[in-house]
Design a protein around this nucleic acid. Structure first.
Lengths: 222, 222
DNA sequence: CGTTGCGTTGATCTCTATCAAAAAAGGTGG
DNA sequence: CCACCTTTTTTGATAGAGATCAACGCAACG
């Protein structure tokens, strides 16, 4: 795994230049952990934060009587413990791998000194957050205010590209996964697709969806 | 209200010196709004962010057909729209006062120049972002895979506090607002509350909800 | 071929939004 | 304190969207 390439694909660092990534890499390292392995513990000094390359980790707290309470589960592309890095000395909770996982570790001192030296980097990171938050706001809006057909229409428009004068969406992953992305189940997705086909807005052939009427589809997406 | 004193009490600026506050004040102004008054609207250029001095505001999205979903309710000391100003774009949602409120308005240019000068400020802002990001992730999960009763149970547990040995939640805003926050409507919220009362998990008195059985309620929240 | 997994289709059921209306809770002015 | 009005909250009945359950077609694959 190329750590540079990975960092450039994360929302925090995707607007960094090659040079800036070079600076960052000095403070970054790859950490491989097995399932069940501890990554950090509550109360330890927060010396680094992490980004998940593959696998899954959980953030949890132990109550006084030993019971465990999971706060979050973080998967691919997600950042872990960066709040602790930026505002407190110690990790406020513990972290353990729940699958064999690969992480990037970025040291606290590293990132802090980098930002002190190059405040512009902070802007880039913050605009990364900003974009990410916007995406989530949009997703929440879609989940709560739109029905499946609209969500599907919007998704197709968002993720299609032009090819030979036609708008094309490539079914690169299973419909099961797309259903999950849209917050529904395969059966319902199938029906929604059938509906759009029946309205003659799209057609499907060879794992490819052709958007026949982008204008109407857009109207449909709300 | 002394704006300096207030700024010194916020988490963003509590470590500022008198001199630094002077700088900040150049970019800051007080904004008073009445209940129901619009503070900014989705799509407007994001020219400033706010900190709530008193009262409450809500961040919400409107669907084309007029349905409303509240994303956050912000009270005293909380920052509003601070993420919107970093990628020089528009407010992704609208903001309205749900009580008579007083805010500090800090201009985009102001905070940007301040961060250039005091990169430490960026750390604080980023820790706020990462927390908000997590809230959104959780909200999305809840919206897509939990029913109202579970969401309500989770919400109560998240937002309750201990007092005299009992977990209580204070109904500081109308149930209409809470319903919107949970992605539903007052009627449905009312029924969900009735259900939890009937199961003897909670009780309500004087604008206060008492969580009688946190364990079971937790089970209920999923 | 059987088997396994995905995608589609059909029937049914559950949850929640909607519509309508009653009840409760706040004001306001007398 | 009471009558009156407004707003909020609750309750009831209904309808619609989507989840669930079950069955089937179809391709990939040992």
């Amino acid at each position: 795994m190329d750590i540079r390439k990975f960092l450039l694909s994360t929302f925090l660092f995707d607007s960094f230049s090659e040079k800036e990534i070079d600076l960052l890499v000095n403070f970054a390292s790859i950490k491989k952990v097995n399932k069940g392995e501890q990554i950090f513990s509550e109360g330890q000094e927060a010396s680094a934060f992490f980004i998940v390359i593959s696998g899954k980790v959980k953030i949890y707290k132990l109550s006084p009587d030993g019971k465990e309470h999971t706060l979050h589960i973080h998967g691919k592309g997600e950042t872990v413990a960066e709040a602790a890095i930026f505002d407190s000395m110690d990790y406020p909770a513990s972290c353990m791998a729940i699958e064999d996982s690969v992480l990037v570790r970025i040291s606290r001192e590293g990132i802090l000194s980098l930002i002190r030296k190059y405040p512009e980097l902070a802007f880039k990171m913050m605009s990364g957050y900003s974009r990410r938050l916007r995406q989530f706001v949009q997703k929440i809006e879609e989940l709560s205010l739109k029905d499946i057909k609209s969500r599907l229409a919007g998704y197709l428009l968002e993720n299609s590209f032009e090819e030979g004068g036609a708008l094309i969406y490539n079914l690169s992953c299973s419909k099961k996964e797309i259903a999950s992305l849209l917050g529904t189940i395969p059966e319902t997705l199938s029906r929604a697709l059938a509906f759009l086909k029946q309205k003659n807005l799209i057609s499907e052939k060879n794992n490819t969806i052709i958007i026949k009427d982008p204008e109407k589809l857009k109207l449909f997406s709300g």
